[in-house]
Amino acid sequence: MTAALEQPLLQVRGVTKHYGARLGCGDVSFDLWPGEVMGIVGESGSGKSTLLSCLAGHLPPDAGEVRFDVDGSLRDTLQLTEPERRRLHRTDWAFVHQHARDGLRMGVSAGGNVGERLMAIGARNYGEIRSQAADWLNRVEIAAERMDDRPTAFSGGMQQRLQIARNLVTGPRLVFMDEPTGGLDVSVQARLLDLLRGLVREMGLSAIIVTHDLAVVRLLADRLMVMKDGRVVEQGLTDQVLDDPQHGYTQLLVSSVLQV
C-alpha cells in the first residue's frame, strides 16, 4: 500500500492549448497525490476550463503530458487508444459539469441516471442497481420517492446533486469538476458545498476542482493553483496561498473576495 503513496495519481507536465493565436492555457505542470483535492482558481477567461478539459481528455492539448496511475505505473493518457480512454471515463474517472444538463440524461429517471455507470461496467442485477442508486440518492439528499422522476422535474441544486451521485456511484479514483456550484443560488451553493465536503472527506476523493469562487476552494481544496491569462501564477497549500498570497494577482483576487 505504501507504493501507492509514493507515486502521484496524476502527473501533469507542460500542458499547453491554443485557440488559434490565443492562449487557452500554457505550460501547466503539477502533481496530484492520492486523496488530494486540487483547486484551480482565476477570473473568467483565465484558462481554467481549458486546462480541465485537456486534463480530462475532452480537448487535445497542443503539447504536454497527462500521466495517470494505471495499475501502479504512470501512463500518458493522451497516448491512450480511444477504447482505453473511454474505458477510463467509465471507470476510474468522473466529470462533473457546471451545467447539470450537460452531465445528465434528462430523459432518464434519477435512478436510471445513477445506475447508468453501474450498468456501463456490467451490473446486470436490477435489484442491486436500484438499491445502490437509492443509497446514492440518499447520500446526496434526494428523497427516495423522487427516484423514478426525471431530472427535468428537479431544481437546479437537485440536478447538480444528482449529477454528483451519478458520477460517484462507481467510486472513481479521480473526479474532475468544472464550477460545480456555479449558476446556483447562494443558499443552494452553500448546501451543495457542505455535501461535497462531506463526500470528499468520507470517500477520500482525489479531485480537481475548477472555480472562480475562493469560498469553494477554501472549503474543499488541499492545494491551489492560481491562473491568469492561461498561466499558473502561483500554487501552494490552500491556506497558505489564500492567507499569504505572494503574487500580486493573487493578492488582488483575495482582496476582491474579502470585499464581497
Binding site: 477504447p83 435512478g111 436510471g112 445506475g115 447508468e116 450498468m119 442497481i129 423514478d148
Partner: peptide
C-alpha cells in the same frame, strides 16, 4: 456507431431499467 464499435452497451440496460422502474 462508436458505442457498437467499442461494445459500450450499458445504455440498452438503462432502457430496460427504465421499463422496470416505470
Amino acid at each position: 456507431r462508436k458505442m457498437h464499435a467499442l461494445e459500450e452497451y450499458g445504455l440498452m440496460h438503462v432502457k430496460l431499467y427504465e421499463d422496470i422502474a416505470r
